[in-house]
Design a protein around this nucleic acid. Sequence first.
DNA 1: ATTTTGACTTTATAACTAAAAAAGTCAGAA
DNA 2: TTCTGACTTTTTTAGTTATAAAGTCAAAAT
Lengths: 201, 201
Amino acid sequence: MHTENRDEMRERIIEAALKRFTHYGASKTTMNEIADDMHCSKASLYYYFPDKHALHLAVLEKAGEMYFQEIEQSAATAATAQDALLDMIPVRHNFARRFCRLELFKVLKDKQLLHSDETFRLAREKETALVAGIIRKGVATGELVTDNPDQIAALYIQSMIGLRLSLSARELTDDISEEEFELVRQWQVQLADIFIKGLKS
Amino acid sequence: MHTENRDEMRERIIEAALKRFTHYGASKTTMNEIADDMHCSKASLYYYFPDKHALHLAVLEKAGEMYFQEIEQSAATAATAQDALLDMIPVRHNFARRFCRLELFKVLKDKQLLHSDETFRLAREKETALVAGIIRKGVATGELVTDNPDQIAALYIQSMIGLRLSLSARELTDDISEEEFELVRQWQVQLADIFIKGLKS
DNA sequence: ATTTTGACTTTATAACTAAAAAAGTCAGAA
DNA sequence: TTCTGACTTTTTTAGTTATAAAGTCAAAAT
């Protein structure tokens, strides 16, 4: 029963941290605040996580899991490749809005990349593989035509990320208005249309 | 003869500032250094420009002129729309490499947007119009098919900017490696291919 | 009259510092 | 094995001063 309890406690800490982090940002949240929320001591947190950075990473991984759960379900229920790609957009959109205070880029920039960049590389690859799968399925049904679904998928993801960055244009950390989010969504839909058209010839 | 000399002196100042700015960055260049380079007094600079910010904007406008001169020539000599779009990429690439220290984004963020954001909006629109013209010409010759060249052009430019931002993904101010630049170029070429394919159906 | 300048004032930046806050540790209790 | 209060160390922050750079102006030069 040891590992069950241990993992459960880890989960509870991650959830408490997630609440604070999404609301106030990771850097504005202290370990004491998380401990107080959980009615336990700060030292307990350090029993389960070696340092704050590890907790931050765990929270980001948790958010990633939630994202992939949603996105995979969305992809699974779509009738066509076109629908699958277009349905992804609002899911990504809501995810970005919800977790924009999670300071993902701060973590990416800090050179504790020793472990974390592996995590993010994997997440990126997983998402790319998902899109590649959608494209491959589209090719199988004759909906799409391409000889390199993986390459196209990587470009698609990269371009979508680019559109988000080019609009909010610096410091993802601070607040982005609802209009800006909506604008990004519209650009992304248009780009998805072009991609889909481009993959029909 | 007054205005001729006046404009000539302005040009000389802009060129001196351009040299320093591209090499060391605008914020690391002092008005005294520019004045010393020109063998004149700092006060003279202030006779031609109300403040450093105005000089910075003038330098950016100058760079913009150089860019459009190159890009228009490139577009004019291309045989097809496809060639025109693909030829733009290395021109943009070289421009970005040469002028990445010009602190464009710092200027855009600073809310002296009173005058400067108009300048940048116009530059953006000019570039979009150029791409729209290429697309329109492609449509006229039957090379491309679309019912909204302006929209597509805006999306194209936005996506290309996005790809640059998503790769360097941090402070455009500091140095970007040659490999990163090359990587951006490759993504941009791939995206251009997709766009062109998407505009043939 | 227009342009230029040295000497000047004002403003912004960088370099310290002290105080506070937060991170992180550990011996021992539960 | 898990948890904690009391503790030490490290990082942030706020305040201060010194320095550098921005910006001004009356007067000189062209």
